[in-house]
Nucleic acid binder design. Sequence first.
DNA 1: GTGAATGCAAACCCTTTGCAATGTT
DNA 2: AACATTGCAAAGGGTTTGCATTCAC
Lengths: 150, 150
Amino acid sequence: MPSFLEQASDAIRQSGGRMTGQRQIIVNLLESATGQLDVDDLHRLARKQDQHISLATVYRTLNVLEDAGLIQPRYQSPEHEHKYYERVGSGQVYHFTCRVCRKIIPFHSELIQELKHHLSKQLDLEVLNACVCLDGLCPECQKQQAQTDR
Amino acid sequence: MPSFLEQASDAIRQSGGRMTGQRQIIVNLLESATGQLDVDDLHRLARKQDQHISLATVYRTLNVLEDAGLIQPRYQSPEHEHKYYERVGSGQVYHFTCRVCRKIIPFHSELIQELKHHLSKQLDLEVLNACVCLDGLCPECQKQQAQTDR
DNA sequence: GTGAATGCAAACCCTTTGCAATGTT
DNA sequence: AACATTGCAAAGGGTTTGCATTCAC
């Protein structure tokens, strides 16, 4: 199994592109990321390795990787205030955002997989990406709301 | 059951706001909308009733209604290229977007309701809004792809 | 009459793009 | 050497905002 960097190099070269130092840095950040990285995270982290890497380069690299089908943009709340990037096929974690305290609660559910299967069978759709973002009230803010309602 | 216009008037007044002619037009458009209206749709349609209504007013009105909890912004594809507005509680239709031909296929699924229940029971979350956007290949584009792969 | 809402234009934020310089192959 | 990529700064697109005027209450 090739590393993500190898995958990315191959994919980029295949389409006539080149693997540069800046791109390597960004690819490695995306590979090692435990969490979800947004453009500014990537820019900030990349600068630690290359002082002069520009935001434009981060954007361009992300677009190249997205076009190559290696990463996908994702969101955490229905308002889509936070866009981040993730490797395709990385274990899908979905997110619930509290409307009051903005806390983000990740969750996983087999129901989403089930939904994909249903659509495949019933409507003959091949689902490649699913955005499932929820929001509402977290347990703590539900309690607080109940109190102020009194 | 009060009309949407009455609901909106009440909610706006309750927060110290005022119901204006422009806001009435927009509220009525949102009520009678069969489909999904985006900002430009609303602006265009509103202009037919009031030549001089500005885009800023449409935006401000939508924000007021959203803050009042009467409408919600929604999206059709995971890329979130198209933002539209919908009354809260209106029959939830979700969307699948074909990556190739950009066709949009609406669908409904009880699995989403089930997901909300699961989260309520397991994590004690009160889900108020769910964004479920899928994309991939529609039946036609799957066939075409199979052909070019040959 | 008071203060909220409007229209306009300018400001904003995030993202993309044109261009000369640099780096990869 | 050819040409893709970079950094910079400027341009873009969609949304918000400051201000004087208008309008709802």
